[in-house]
Design a protein around this nucleic acid. Sequence first.
DNA 1: TCTTATACTGAAACCGTTTTCATATATAAA
DNA 2: TTTATATATGAAAACGGTTTCAGTATAAGA
Lengths: 338, 338
Amino acid sequence: MPTIKDVAKYAGLSRTTVSRVINDQPYVSDEKRQCVLKAMEELGYVPNSSARRLRSQKTETLAVLLPRITNPFFSHLIEAMEIKASQWGYQVIICQTHESEQKEQDYLELLRTKQVDGVIMTAVHNDWEVIESYRECGPIVVCNENIEEAQVPFIYVNQEEAAYDATMHLIQQGCKNISFLSGDDDSNVSAYRRSGFLKALQESSLPFLPNASYANAIDVNSGREIFRELRRLNHPIDGVFTGSDEVAAGMIYEAIKEGVRVPEDMSIIGFDNQSISMLMSPSITTVEQPVQDMGEKCVEVLIDQIEHKHRSVREDHVFEHELKVRNSTFQEIALVNS
Amino acid sequence: MPTIKDVAKYAGLSRTTVSRVINDQPYVSDEKRQCVLKAMEELGYVPNSSARRLRSQKTETLAVLLPRITNPFFSHLIEAMEIKASQWGYQVIICQTHESEQKEQDYLELLRTKQVDGVIMTAVHNDWEVIESYRECGPIVVCNENIEEAQVPFIYVNQEEAAYDATMHLIQQGCKNISFLSGDDDSNVSAYRRSGFLKALQESSLPFLPNASYANAIDVNSGREIFRELRRLNHPIDGVFTGSDEVAAGMIYEAIKEGVRVPEDMSIIGFDNQSISMLMSPSITTVEQPVQDMGEKCVEVLIDQIEHKHRSVREDHVFEHELKVRNSTFQEIALVNS
DNA sequence: TCTTATACTGAAACCGTTTTCATATATAAA
DNA sequence: TTTATATATGAAAACGGTTTCAGTATAAGA
């Protein structure tokens, strides 16, 4: 592999001049520029990025921390991020935390060891003060969470409102005994959603059913399991806020198996508008978040911080959600009759 | 940020000794080792990875090239890869090609610029001779494709056999007019599947229907569209090999809408055993590939090549597929009656 | 006692760039 | 003509580690 030194020698010029050509800097005569380009071409030279990184103190690489990439919400998010980052000439390294505090810290170390210029966190598992200590090593932006005391940019949808709207929709459909499901309980997202859920119940003078509340609803299988548990309650449930299309799909799967009619006997509402929500029968009413826009925004904000080195203060980028009403909460018959 | 020099000074020792401690090398007395560790701790020192990379000529980073991360097959693959890589202390950077030859080349450049130690390609869009030219810069392994003339490790499922088995299953269910769908047509996967498909038809003395053959079946929407097109043919179709669970799901969605009964009027078979295939009603018969094992194997083989620097020759790691028979090709009634 | 081997330590070279600084020349302004 | 300014070039320092090599001290073997 030829180095810049070889190119310089071959072109009969100094490394400095070659470097100027590589980086499109001024103060190189056209004649020499051509000369250098020719030399690079003929030697098949390509600059070594480790050396560039060391000297220029930047990596043009971002780390994206997420629980697991197979969750469609996160895969869509990181898809958008990678595309945007690539447009800016940045690489994206993928960091699956699997909800582990330790792994989250391990990956944040990438910032300290200068393997990345910045970090996007799409979930936060450690206490904020732990995260905070990494901030001196480089910018961090948080996506999909909202931690009040933290002074970094946040990109999110108002989960409280979203859950409120979803719950209100269930109530308008006539649900009176509504179950609340959430994933990881230490996440702020769950807390905000619960709060919106409770607000809707309260305004409608409906009771909260702690027995029909589960905090381990994360995927299809947990959805199926929780459905079976709900059936065992002596209190009949006619509506479920799942917080996830996959959980909703799992519940519907089980409902069909058990002969429970959705939405007539039980209305089920998902979250994220993943493709599964359209495909299930009945199709799943869900809350759409503008995932692509959010992903792009994260990258833009982060790169802006990296390239302009401005100390990040609190910054809120709130995106709008949208309720997608489908058949898991809404009987088409009613529509036909009206 | 403190450097190794600061640590050395603080500990009253040389950079060399500090380096030895960092890298767990012998020939450091216990006393000095403690001394260095204490100094690192107190200064909050962490080695700069750009400097390490430059000197030691390795990055401990892998690039994974894939069409798009939102395709569940690839997200499951990369999930397994990331976990395995992380166990070996390697980072994974994600490279979405979107089937573009140019992007594929751009990402292969990471190898030349020494930003990664090796590359995993989960699809191949350029001619092999183009790829070949990057091999002198570092090891490449190919996953999910099988290019005969190429002398690198391949990790794959025998797509010809898989398609043969799937088609045979359709035929055994009584299908006589079977449509063949595939995604990207320049991919070898499609070619092998087509070959297996044809073999099954031939052995059963059934005709191949070129009019009912589509090469743009990649997702739910294309599945829906193709279903509608198939309906417009004057030749009635009673079986479809889709090559993708998402395409199959899209077709089933449309079938339900149009009152076509699956599998009575038309049997549909997917590929990949994604969670959607179990959730649809009817659930989708599909071909399972051991995605996790394949992902892990890719990383193992690649890291082995990186760390032992042995020139890679042809190496075939063939994994077994498994037909998962579900309701989109198989009437449960028949099972009950028997 | 004299080699010889082994454990420990550090000075200096090296990895391949970019950046700083000094110098030279050409052009414009005074 | 002199001075200031802009353009063009290269030598050398810097980035922050690891590796080579040489040197010293101590223990073991002849």
